[in-house]
């Protein structure tokens, strides 16, 4: 069955499939290799769609995530930027949550101490962070640290470990 020329809908369907695979490879496979994979996949999908229709062509690919995983097994780069970003974000959020908890505890301490008419501050490792805060005696105004050299250091370390631990473990297994 030759379906002939493709409609915009067919091309959109093919592009969605290609982009879905791309989404799984993004940040994990080197860019040049990723472009080659996607160009070949698109070319084969167009060819298939002209023969059997775009819907069937995409269906014949099977599970797109499994397909992307097969490519990942083959072409995974040294660094997984996506995993690194994820762990950097988690680390930043963990620091912030911990900082907030410290701040709440400090504010409770100030209130319990019966402080009057002044602002009180605390700071771990002055000038380096990551925890510092100021609270007024009434508790109406407060400041917490959202960025510091320590934040940057922790986030960078988390990114480095998060983006490369899979490569390290893979090397150990072999």
């Amino acid at each position: 069955m030759n379906q002939g020329a493709l409609t915009k809908k067919d091309r959109a369907r093919i592009e969605i499939a290609v982009r879905t695979v791309d989404w799984h490879l993004d940040g994990r496979v080197p860019r040049a290799r990723r472009r080659q994979i996607l160009n070949e996949l698109r070319s084969n999908l167009i060819e298939a769609a002209e023969q059997v229709g775009s819907q069937q062509a995409v269906r014949q690919l099977g599970d797109l995530k499994a397909l992307a995983n097969s490519y990942l097994e083959l072409y995974r780069g040294r660094f997984d930027i996506r995993a690194g970003s994820f762990w950097a974000f988690i680390t930043y959020m963990a620091i912030q949550v911990l900082g907030l908890a410290l701040f709440i505890a400090f504010r409770a301490g100030v209130a319990a101490g019966g402080a009057h008419g002044a602002s009180y501050s605390f700071e771990f490792w002055p000038g380096f962070g990551p925890f510092a805060g100021t609270v007024s005696a009434s508790g109406n105004t407060f400041e917490v640290l959202i960025g510091s050299p320590a934040h940057i250091l922790f986030v960078l370390v988390a990114f480095m470990i998060g983006s490369s631990y899979r490569t390290v473990f893979a090397r150990r297994r072999t």
Binding site: I37, E40, L41, N44, A48, A57, Q60, L61, G62, D63, L64, A66, L67, S70, Y71, E73, L74, Y75
Partner: peptide, 11 residues
């Protein structure tokens, strides 16, 4: 499936 042939070619 097409999806098993293309990575096999890559391999």
């Amino acid at each position: 499936q097409d999806g098993s042939v293309y990575p096999a070619l890559g391999r």
